[in-house]
C-alpha cells in the first residue's frame, strides 16, 4: 500500500503537475490569424463522428438485448433465479 502511494506521489510530481501548469498557462502569447469557423466546426464534426459511432454501438447493443432476451423470444429460457423466485 505504502509503495503504491509513493508511486502515485512520484507520478504526480513528474507528469501531472507540469501538465497542469502547461494547460493553465496557455493563453498569454498573442495568437495568429485563423478561421474560427473552420477550427470550431471541425472539432464539432470530429466529436460527432465519435459520438455517433459510440451511439451506434450502444443502441445496437440495446436493440439486440431487447430482441434476444424478451420473454417471447423462442430461445428465451428461465433464469436460474426463477427456481427459487428470489432476485
Amino acid at each position: 500500500m505504502r509503495s503504491k502511494i509513493g508511486l502515485l506521489v512520484v507520478f504526480t510530481i513528474i507528469f501531472i503537475i507540469p501538465t497542469l501548469n502547461y494547460a493553465f498557462a496557455a493563453g498569454d502569447e498573442p495568437g495568429e490569424y485563423l478561421d474560427r469557423r473552420v477550427v470550431i466546426w471541425n472539432l464539432f464534426f470530429r466529436m460527432m463522428v465519435v459520438a455517433f459511432t459510440i451511439g451506434a454501438v450502444v443502441s445496437g447493443t440495446m436493440v439486440w438485448l431487447v430482441w434476444r432476451f424478451r420473454e417471447s423470444n423462442p430461445n428465451a429460457k428461465p433464469t436460474k433465479y426463477e427456481e427459487t423466485g428470489e432476485w
Binding site: 494547460a23 496557455a26 493563453g27 502569447e29 498573442p30 495568437g31 495568429e32 490569424y33 485563423l34 474560427r36 477550427v39 470550431i40 472539432l43 470530429r46 466529436m47 465519435v50 459510440i54
Partner: peptide
C-alpha cells in the same frame, strides 16, 4: 480514454481561438 481525448482536443482548440492577434 474517450473523455481524455475530448478534453485534450477541446483544450487545444480553445487555446487557438482565444489568442487575439496583436
Amino acid at each position: 480514454a474517450l473523455l481524455v481525448w475530448v478534453g485534450a482536443e477541446a483544450w487545444n482548440v480553445e487555446r487557438l481561438v482565444e489568442h487575439v492577434p496583436a
